[in-house]
Design a protein around this nucleic acid. Sequence first.
DNA 1: CCAAAAGTGTTATGTCTACACCCATGA
DNA 2: TCATGGGTGTAGACATAACACTTTTGG
Lengths: 254, 254
Amino acid sequence: MATRTTRTARGVKPVGYDPSQYPAFAVTVDVVILTMVDGELHVLLVRRAHDPFAGMWAIPGGFKLPTETLDAAASRELAEETGVDAASLLAQFGAYGDPERDPRMNVVTVGYVAVLRDVGAIEAGSDAAEAELHPVLDVLAGRIELAFDHLRIIGDAIARVRTDLEVTGIATAFVGPTFTLAELRAVYEAVWGVQLDSANFRRSVASEQGWVIPTGRRAPSGAAGGKPAELFKAGAAWKQGGPIRRPRSSKRGA
Amino acid sequence: MATRTTRTARGVKPVGYDPSQYPAFAVTVDVVILTMVDGELHVLLVRRAHDPFAGMWAIPGGFKLPTETLDAAASRELAEETGVDAASLLAQFGAYGDPERDPRMNVVTVGYVAVLRDVGAIEAGSDAAEAELHPVLDVLAGRIELAFDHLRIIGDAIARVRTDLEVTGIATAFVGPTFTLAELRAVYEAVWGVQLDSANFRRSVASEQGWVIPTGRRAPSGAAGGKPAELFKAGAAWKQGGPIRRPRSSKRGA
DNA sequence: CCAAAAGTGTTATGTCTACACCCATGA
DNA sequence: TCATGGGTGTAGACATAACACTTTTGG
């Protein structure tokens, strides 16, 4: 029919293509950088120096260049912000284009989440007044004033990480190249807000092959003593998902 | 430090905001419309009438207007394409911005997936040469020539639906307002590419309360006879996820 | 020796799977 | 009455959860 033909010609892609004829947007990439500090999930925020939203906290981000992919833009932003060069840690989780999300112009932003260990060390070397780690619980509870729609973006990032923890091997990104099972378990507990039995956790991860590989070395005990924990490195099985299923009913709240 | 301050001022959002100073992109929304036909997952494709990629198949889409949200743009596209007005069925799953994805201009597109019943009936009323349902297996196998990066986009949409089937209540979107358990089970089997035991499926869905609500009515038997199946409608429990867990090892391939 | 944390063993309780069997219908 | 698909029952395999117990460290 005529309407369908018209729609197809108009809707799928423009036929005549004077770019100025189509609405122009700025495209940015925002990166939610998550890390564990003292068994609690934290997010890296930067303080805005200028209006709009001067003085408020925001997640780092920047413009996509016409010559780079979205993934490359996110990778570049992550490297500029933390010095970490690890594109594999980045996962795209959403796009945001509400008309009023930036008061100055039409901006569509694409959200990426990066899960890292030791952002603290990297970040501590720079001006703490400009970039800081905040507990995600504080952020999600609204106790931190966030610029733009960044509260929503961070919330979506957390939701994504929660399901990715079960479906992908993202858990190993939170820990270092070698880690104890307690460290790995703390990741699940912090992200899901649950308490996992250490004995059962060990069985799920260490008895089946491919998840963790013993290094033979041991981590030093804590200040209060305790048996030194075995150090593992991540196996190949994480490519196909995670060994831990999210408990269906959690005893503790999130 | 100076570098960080500079980065923050530059990276997060522009301070001076002459829009022409920042790279301009066209922003489109593409909708992957999925439906079940004869127990097989199908995707709605439209044939392109003009270059580039004239004659090839593509997923429907169109430009985002500066005055609407991304969700609204997707909703509008879905309504224009199928006549279905159901924003709740739409789920955003990815953004695509490779520099060369559109040979004419810088286009960033945001992918949405819509899961519907009876696209067939709607689509049959219009010109079949312009819009057609194709089995996703054919598409993913590369047997259909697709425009742009639409093969990748469709692949991502399927991957999203596969996990959403376990995590969200999207399964009910494939079936009508009332449905038999065999219809619902066929959704899982088609999307996951597995065979589920009908007896065990019934137990998971119908013995626990909140998933399906009996209507008292029965569906007519098929041509070969058989006991008429009970008709159910979806309960409220689907808001918090699905009752069926994806089997860890599938007997049949996907 | 004592507290603390790692690591092992054991048992009860669910959940998943496979399959046997009965029920209701169209041809 | 026979084939077909809906629906119920049930026993074994498997997974999960809970917790007692042993091991190894720091103080």
